[in-house]
């Protein structure tokens, strides 16, 4: 059995003690690329928030192998455009977990953030206002910010939401490239089946209160797909 970085045991997730999904037991292999799929309202974001520790599990256990740290990439559309922050300012926030209160990021940390922006091809957006960047450009800055946390697990919440088709393809290829180069564990929430099929190794499919977990080859068979879509239509 491969080395698991995240293990969920009989996990139930939801709000105010009410479970929206329960009985989730699965393991996510270290260094894997896992896509979390499901229609709106099936609990994808709730699962992500619970994994990240942003909201408590209703019951069950989440085991994260240390020293795994999360690099979180939220949806770019959620940020308030009122903040006059540059791309660099946003990416620099990735270092704030290491730079405590009453301290300021050192020159070395700033250089590291510039490296992260370069790695995500977002160097050109460093001095531009974050609010004025396009959806795809914002996502690259946010991925640079997540890399600046020096994570072992990269968690992306619908990074292609609001991004055009060409930019979506390029973004997914780029995430795939980072995954391979940096040996990161990637958890990606998305709706885009063709791109998932191309890039992901494992799938967590949230569907009608059930959680299907397997490899792309196991879940993307015509029989399983027909079963899932039949259930969705039904």
């Amino acid at each position: 059995m491969s080395d698991s970085v995240i293990t969920l045991e009989s996990l139930a997730i939801g709000y105010d003690g009410q479970a929206v999904l329960s009985g989730i037991s699965l393991a996510i292999a270290r260094g894997s690329f896992t896509a979390i799929l499901g229609a709106n309202g099936t609990g994808k974001s709730t699962l992500l928030k619970t994994l990240l520790g942003l909201q408590p599990a209703v019951s069950g256990q989440i085991k994260i192998q240390p020293p795994a740290g999360f690099g979180y990439v939220p949806q770019a559309t959620q940020f308030d455009p009122l903040y006059p922050l540059t791309g660099f300012d946003v990416a620099l926030m990735g270092t704030f977990g290491r730079v405590g209160p009453m301290r300021f990021p050192s020159r070395a940390e700033k250089d590291f953030v510039r490296d992260c922006l370069r790695a995500t091809a977002a160097e050109g957006f460093a001095q531009k206002k974050f609010s004025q960047l396009s959806g795809g450009q914002k996502q690259r800055v946010l991925i640079a910010r997540a890399l600046a946390t020096k994570p072992e697990i990269l968690v992306l919440d619908e990074p292609t939401a609001g991004v055009d088709v060409a930019a979506t393809k390029s973004l997914l290829e780029f995430i795939s490239q980072i995954h391979e180069e940096r040996k990161l564990t990637v958890l990606l929430v998305t709706h885009d089946l063709p791109l998932v099929k191309k890039h992901a190794q494992q799938i967590i499919w949230l569907h009608d209160g059930a959680v299907l977990h397997g490899t792309v080859a196991e879940l993307f068979t015509p029989e399983r797909m027909a079963e899932i879509f039949e259930m969705e239509v039904g």
């Binding site: 928030k49 990240l52 942003l54 999360f70 979180y72 940020f79 926030m93 704030f96 209160p101």
Partner: peptide, 22 residues
Amino acid sequence: LLFHKEFLFVSFDRAMAATLGK
């Protein structure tokens, strides 16, 4: 001045701040 970084971080992105242990 001393806590400007933290005030800005939790104002701009609460979720990220929480994942980094703030």
